[in-house]
């Protein structure tokens, strides 16, 4: 699988994603600079976390207009596989590749800690190696991860099985007290209509090696390898 990790000037999880894909998952991995127009023909594009252009206006608002994002939108519209993690998710929302928007965490604080996620859809190309309702231990690190959308959109996401991860307890119980940021329906990750674009707030790249305390994030990379067939 050939992977392109997009680098915005304020990306800070770019090298983490790069290391996991290259050294842990042994994929052919490369960086793509935000001013570039060539995605380098990947099977997977990763929009990593960080604060793309400082994010002083809104997270991801300016990144959306970068040259590379034009390519990413086209790539996604042609069915290419894209995962946006944390700030990458925010950029996908701003770019209109995924529905909804992010508000400040309800605590109004930046939160960095390990959380539990229940897998809600195991049919997607991002989750086919996970078991139904499998609970993953993956960290979050964000100040604006409070996902929101109008009720119709939420209903559609639910009906079309596009909510992929929800914040839960260790045993998989979904309740408000396990919701770290106030996201609607404990939503941690969603798919686009065609199922080729995933946005998620938690960082699977930080949970892909035992030495870092969890390897649960690997399930996502393994699913992608499986669906890429290489």
């Amino acid at each position: 699988m050939k992977v392109s990790v997009v680098v915005f000037p304020g990306s800070n999880c770019d090298s983490d994603c790069f290391n996991v894909m290259k050294d842990v998952m042994k994929c052919d991995t490369q960086f793509v600079w935000h001013k570039d127009h060539d995605l380098k023909k990947p099977d997977l594009v990763i929009l990593p976390g960080g604060f793309s252009y400082g994010d002083y206006l809104r997270c991801g608002a300016i990144a959306r207009f970068s040259p590379v994002m034009r390519e990413v939108v086209q790539f996604a519209n042609n069915g290419g596989t894209v995962i946006g993690i944390c700030n990458g998710f925010q950029i996908l929302l701003e770019a209109g590749l995924l529905p909804g928007a992010m508000l400040a965490n309800r605590s109004l604080k930046f939160i960095c800690k390990h959380v539990w996620l229940r897998t809600e859809n195991t049919k997607s190309k991002f989750t086919n190696r996970l078991k139904p309702a499998q609970v993953l231990n993956i960290p979050i690190a964000h100040g604006e991860g409070n996902y929101t959308a109008d009720p119709d959109t939420i209903k559609r996401l639910r009906d079309e099985n596009r909510i992929v991860f929800r914040y839960s307890s260790e045993s998989g119980e979904i309740a408000d007290k396990f919701n770290p940021n106030g996201a609607v329906e404990n939503i941690a990750g969603i798919l686009n209509e065609k199922g080729n674009v995933l946005g998620m707030m938690p960082h699977p790249e930080r949970a892909s090696e035992d030495i870092l305390g969890s390897h649960d994030g690997r399930g996502i990379w393994e699913s992608l390898l499986e669906s890429a067939g290489k």
């Binding site: 996991v20 960095c112 690190a141």
Partner: peptide, 28 residues
């Protein structure tokens, strides 16, 4: 306090803050 800072970025933090006598960070 430390949950308000990103203490895991760069995926090298082996011992998370506050749990052990010292922070331990690997060198990739």
């Amino acid at each position: 306090i430390y949950e308000q800072y990103d203490h895991m970025v760069r995926t090298d933090t082996v011992f998370l803050p506050g749990r052990h006598d010292a922070a331990v960070v690997r060198i990739k």
